[in-house]
Amino acid sequence: MMTEIAPTEFTPFVSLIGGMLIGTAAVLLMAFQGRIFGATGILAGFLTPVNSSDWAWRAVLLAGMVTGPLVYALFTGHFPAVDVPVTKGALLIGGFIVGIGVSYGSGCTSGHGVCGMARLSPRSIVATLSFMASTAVTVFVIRHIFGGA
C-alpha cells in the first residue's frame, strides 16, 4: 500500500529573497576577497586554515550563516520553521552521499551552481546539470517507485 505523497511547498517570494541574498553574498565575497562562494570549500578552509587572515573571513562568513536564524527571529519574533520530513538516519545517509559528491565534484551547489554558472565555467555547468539530474531522478524514485513523501 502506497502512502500519500505530501505536497511540495511553493514559496516564490521567500525563495527569491533567499536567492538574492546568496547572490549578493557571492558577489561581495568575490569583490572583497577574490574568492568563490562555495560553502563546503569555505568550511573546509575554516577547519584546515592556510593562515590566520584566511581563517578570519571564513569564520565571519560561517558565523553569519549560523546566526541567520537569530536575525530572522529578531525581526519576526519567531524562528523560521524547519520541517524535515525524513528520519535522522536518512539525513545522515544523505549527508554522507552529498559529502562524497562534493569531494568528487570539487565543489558544491553554491560553488558550482551559483558562482561557477555565473562565470560560465564549463566544469561547473556540467556539475550543475549532473546534480540537478541526480536530484530529479532521486525525487522520482523516492516519490513514485518507493512511494515515500
Rank of each mutant, 00 (worst) to 15 (best):
R143F: 08
A26L: 00
V84F: 07
T76A: 07
C115L: 03
S106M: 09
F140Q: 02
T24G: 03
S53E: 12
L62V: 07
K88T: 05
M2G: 04
F131H: 12
A6Y: 08
G101Q: 13
M1H: 12
F146A: 14
I142A: 15
W55S: 01
V86Q: 06
V60D: 00
C108L: 11
A73I: 09
T40L: 04
T67A: 15
M132F: 14
R119L: 13
G111H: 00
A63T: 14
V50N: 08
A56C: 09
F79A: 11
R143T: 10
I22W: 04
T128F: 15
M65K: 11
Y72C: 03
G148A: 03
T128M: 13
S103I: 14
L43T: 10
A56S: 13
I97K: 08
F79S: 08
G64D: 08
I36W: 09
P49M: 14
R143C: 06
P85S: 05
F146C: 09
G105N: 13
A31R: 06
P49R: 12
L91M: 06
C108W: 11
F131G: 10
F37G: 07
S52P: 05
G41M: 06
G95M: 07
A63I: 10
L120D: 04
L43N: 03
R123P: 05
G99T: 13
A118C: 03
G23P: 01
C115E: 05
G64I: 09
V71F: 14
A25M: 06
T109M: 08
I5Y: 08
A44V: 10
I5F: 10
P7K: 13
V98W: 00
S134I: 09
T76C: 05
I5R: 14
P80A: 04
A44G: 04
S134L: 14
V27F: 05
A26M: 01
P122A: 12
R143Y: 07
L61W: 02
A127C: 11
F37V: 11
I145E: 02
A39V: 15
L61T: 11
M1A: 14
M117D: 00
W57R: 07
A149V: 10
L21Y: 00
T67H: 04
V98K: 00
D54V: 00
Y104K: 13
A6Q: 12
V137G: 07
M117N: 01
M132V: 15
T109D: 05
A63D: 03
L21N: 00
L43M: 06
I93P: 01
A149H: 08
G68C: 01
V137W: 11
R58Q: 12
F37K: 07
V141P: 05
G111N: 00
V66C: 02
Q33P: 07
V14E: 04
A25R: 02
L61K: 01
V139H: 11
T3Y: 07
H112V: 03
E9R: 15
G95H: 08
T8L: 15
P80E: 05
G105E: 12
R123N: 06
N51G: 12
F79T: 09
L62D: 02
A90F: 05
R123L: 09
V98T: 02
P7W: 10
M117R: 00
T48C: 06
A81K: 14
F131W: 10
